[in-house]
Design a protein around this nucleic acid. Structure first.
Length: 884
DNA sequence: AGGCCCTCGTT
DNA sequence: GACGTACGAGGGCCTA
């Protein structure tokens, strides 16, 4: 099969694969600093590098479609007619791909009036006849017909890196017909992407069956009268369509080709051209993967791949425990409820070791534990918190975490997707992990043992850390990384490990109440329309509201008209109906019931809920919480609020204490803007919204009505989110003019805020990023987008990121301060939760006053702002009572 | 089973 | 023509 003596011809459908790459890689993450999108180029080049390396073809060509029609559209103008227009970001990448091909020395071919597939078909035949092994790479199913013993199709399953090999056997297995019969099958079934309808009621199974019985399409059509059943009648009704389909899906194999097969010989890349192209496209890691394709005679300055670090397992324990750091560490294991660790890997850069934890004697484990728990041994991991949990399951309290390549990669660019090790290695080192997709267990090959794999991974993490440290330093985020994010890992790990106690009975009561209210509301809703519908189905609700009841249309959404709460409230105002009222009540109760159910099912055997906090999700730098999310427990409605009564102080502790920042984002805005009026308001300690309301409406603070206050409050917060007068008007249900007037008045009194908001966006556009108080950067390339909508969104992001991000910085610093203070004072009380501007602490007996003091002091001390940071503290036996 | 859409909870 | 940040989670529903 892999006989290397035969020449190999690699044939690629350029558009098809570039298109796949375009949709596989988010365009917003791939652009040059000048805003040229490069995701399709990147994905295509990456795929090509892999193919060249794996298959080492002697000949290669990439075929392109040309603009304008083909003989197929001449025959049938609607051919491929349903295809959406290509996205504007895609088009400009096609010439770039041709440039890359040129640099790599890979032939690009095209032909007027024919599709790339026809060129592939013709070259496949020519290659076959020349005795070559042929590989066709295409995402177009029509190319299945090319498969023979000599021609293998590589068809993308997902993205462009996951290619399925279609050999003759694989085609039969997948479709139940031979590759040469596939066009017959496709003609019957139809091809949506080509806008060729098939025979209604006939799917691949039926088509394959018929082909088996009658030997092929001709046989089927000759015997059409005898084909039984409904499908048979359907076939007879669509014979013309089927014939047309078959005519169009036949690929031309005898084209006059622009280059001979011999001309396609691959002679290798041109080093200078590859460097030029990579410079222009700002490809860093891809450069390293493309350069090996350079032929030896032009390869003078090609840096060599660093040698794979040798992994030692024999005598690893003794070697590792003798190390005093710094090292990179990898833990093979699971996190979560069934946490466990079974192997670790350690690397110093020159050398790596792997240790099987399951095979250690008691004495060995003691010695390893001492090393892992030694704070003086500096360790860098990828996802250190996960490693901590896995080791904690074995009673090991990992210490000395001084680096985390996952957190580091997030700081470098928070808007990228995927911070699992495989993705980050790929991104920064160009290392491709095999076996399993990103996110799955990483397998860098070599040896099957977990210990060996751990050692190899540790070595990779070490190389990654060196790269990322430099990137972080370049961006001025070293102190944020070393002094905030890294120390926070241990704090979060302990919070997750502690969990928060839940009173299951109380939770059960709330669930019962919600269920009863939901049932009642549902009954009333059915009564109101004289029948049952699924109240949880927006689709069915649309049918009831807008068709059966003929209500006025609400705002448009992708699938019709919205049935969300605000739309329903509008409807109720315009055309009152008992159904609407019951529906809203049902929504409310059902949602609560659902939340409670999720929480109840998350309670572990210890009677506590252990959420998982992530430092690498929210681009602004906030934490996120999941499984379950404890940062969105209801508070606004009475019934929702009562859920918090089920979060209680645990056994052995006395109270829960909550401490939250008062109006933290407004204070940060006052600080960042330096607006004297706003700063004065906070310094005076007045009610902010009353103070602002007085200025905006030109009345005495005492004369600010509750209504004025709430309007001003909405506006103040809205400004930090980039709210428009339109949005404010809608939120306040006032005319746009009134909202605009309010904003004008606001800016007239608080000019510093207006100037700040303007400056922050302009500066971000200039330098490409925003920055928080602690120097956290967020890159926002869309600020220079020519697409109005994208740019508008980017501007709102730029407004909000420094404010929300600075608030995140401050509370993270506060958490570190609280942690240190609790420890320094030898207290048993512990932090349990963080909800963006609030901390929840479980207080041990006799520590109440000390804890309250620590919280207040540390939260105050987190920021040195031009306005005071107010902190509210509350206590109680449950979360609701502790709140305020 | 997996993914998209809608809806909705928090800050 | 759109128009407020940042998330996570569940159900419905379509596709594979």
């Amino acid at each position: 099969m892999n006989d290397s003596s035969r020449p190999t011809l690699l044939l690629i459908d350029g558009f098809s694969m570039a298109f796949r790459a375009f949709f596989a890689l988010p365009v917003e993450n791939f652009a040059t600093s000048t805003g040229v999108p490069t995701n399709a180029v990147y994905g295509f080049a990456s795929m090509l590098a892999t193919l060249m390396k794996e298959h080492a073809p002697t000949h290669a060509a990439v075929a392109f479609d040309l603009p304008g029609g083909t003989f197929r559209t001449e025959r049938l103008p609607s051919y491929k007619g349903t295809r959406d227009a290509t996205p504007p970001e895609f088009e400009p990448q096609v010439p770039l791909i041709r440039e890359v091909l040129d640099a790599l020395g890979v032939a690009a071919v095209d032909k007027e009036r024919y599709e790339a597939d026809d060129l592939l078909a013709t070259y496949a035949r020519l290659g076959r006849e020349a005795g070559m092994r042929v590989l066709v790479v295409s995402g177009d199913r029509d190319t299945i017909q090319l498969v023979t013993e000599d021609v293998t199709l590589l068809y993308p399953r997902k993205g462009v890196s996951d290619l399925v090999r279609f050999t003759p056997d694989a085609v039969v297995e997948k479709y139940g017909v031979r590759s040469d019969q596939y066009p017959d099958l496709a003609a019957l079934v139809g091809e949506t992407s080509d806008n060729l309808p098939g025979v209604p009621g006939v799917g691949p199974k039926t088509a394959a069956k018929w082909i088996g019985v009658y030997g092929g399409l001709e046989g089927i059509l000759d015997n059409a009268e005898d084909v039984p059943g409904k499908a048979g009648q359907s076939l007879r009704d669509h014979v013309d369509q089927v014939r047309l389909n078959r005519e169009l899906n036949h690929l031309v194999t005898d084209l006059e080709v622009p280059l001979t097969v011999e001309d396609l010989e691959y002679r290798g890349a041109d080093a200078v051209a590859v460097h030029q192209v990579c410079d222009a496209l700002q490809f860093r890691t891809l450069r390293e993967r493309l350069l090996p394709l350079v032929t030896s005679d032009s390869a003078e300055h090609v840096p060599e791949e660093p040698d794979e670090v040798e992994v030692v397992t024999d005598g690893a324990l003794a070697a590792v425990t003798a190390l005093s750091g710094p090292v990179s560490l990898h833990v093979e294991g699971r996190t979560g409820a069934d946490a466990d660790a079974w192997a670790i890997g350690v690397s110093t850069g020159d050398q790596a070791w792997g240790i099987d934890l399951t095979a250690l004697s008691a004495a060995e484990e003691t010695s390893l534990r001492a090393w892992l728990e030694d704070d003086a041994v500096a360790k860098t991991l990828h996802g250190a918190k996960d490693g901590w949990h896995a080791l904690m399951a074995r009673g090991i309290d990992l210490a000395g975490i001084t680096g985390d390549t996952q957190v580091g990669a997030f700081l470098v660019n928070a808007d990228q997707r995927g911070f699992d090790l495989a993705s980050v290695l790929q991104r920064y080192l160009g290392v491709t992990a095999t076996g399993g997709t990103a996110g799955d267990e990483l397998d860098l090959g070599l040896d099957a043992s977990a210990a060996h794999a751990a050692g190899s991974t540790a070595a990779h993490v070490g190389r990654l850390a060196a790269e990322l440290d430099a990137e972080i330093e370049r961006r001025g985020m070293t102190s944020l990384y070393r002094e905030v994010e890294i120390p926070l890992i241990g704090v979060l790990a302990r919070m997750e490990h502690a969990g928060i106690a839940v009173d299951r009975e109380r939770l059960g009561e709330r669930a019962d109440g919600a269920r009863a209210r939901a049932d009642l509301a549902a009954a009333q809703a059915y009564e109101a329309i004289g029948g049952e519908v699924n109240l949880g189905s927006p689709k069915q609700l649309q049918e009831v509201l807008f068709e059966r009841l003929g209500m006025p249309k609400t705002k448009k959404i992708k699938t019709g008209y919205s049935t969300d709460a605000s739309s329903l409230a509008d409807l109720q105002a315009k055309s009152p109906h008992p159904f609407l009222e019951a529906l809203l009540a049902h929504r409310d109760a059902a949602k609560l019931g659902q939340i409670i159910e999720t929480l109840a099912q998350a309670v572990r055997e210890d009677g506590r809920i252990h959420t998982t906090f992530s430092q690498v999700v929210a681009s602004t730098g906030r934490l996120s919480s999941k499984d379950p999310n404890l940062q969105n427990i209801p508070i606004r409605t009475e019934e929702g609020h009562r859920i918090r009564e089920a979060f209680v102080v645990g056994k052995g502790y006395e109270t829960l204490v909550t401490a939250d920042y008062s109006q933290i984002e407004m204070r940060i805005m006052a600080h960042l803007s330096g607006d004297e009026g706003l700063i004065e308001a906070f310094r005076a300690g007045e009610d902010l919204h009353r103070f602002v309301g007085a200025r905006v409406f030109g009345v005495d603070p005492d004369d600010v009505t509750p209504e004025m206050r709430s309007k001003v409050k909405a506006m103040s917060y809205g400004l930090a989110y980039g709210l428009s007068s339109f949005g404010l008007a809608r939120q306040l249900s006032v005319p746009v003019g009134e909202a605009q007037a309010m904003m004008d008045d606001y800016f007239a009194r608080f000019g510093g805020v207006r100037d700040y908001l303007r400056t922050v966006v302009d500066q971000a556009r200039e330098v490409g990023y925003t920055e928080t108080i602690l120097g956290r950067r967020r890159y926002i390339p869309d600020l220079t987008s020519t697409n109005r909508q994208r740019r508008d969104i980017a501007e709102r992001v730029a407004l909000n990121a420094p404010i929300q991000g600075s608030a995140a910085d401050l509370i993270k610093k506060a958490m570190l301060g609280v942690d240190v203070a609790l420890r320094d004072q030898g207290l048993a009380s512990r932090q349990l939760l963080q909800v963006h501007d609030e901390l929840v602490v479980e207080v041990a007996a006799g520590e109440q006053d000390a804890v309250e003091t620590i919280l207040t002091e540390q939260m105050h001390a987190a920021g040195d702002l031009s306005v005071p940071l107010d902190v509210n503290v509350g206590k109680g036996s449950d979360w609701r009572a502790a709140g305020h």
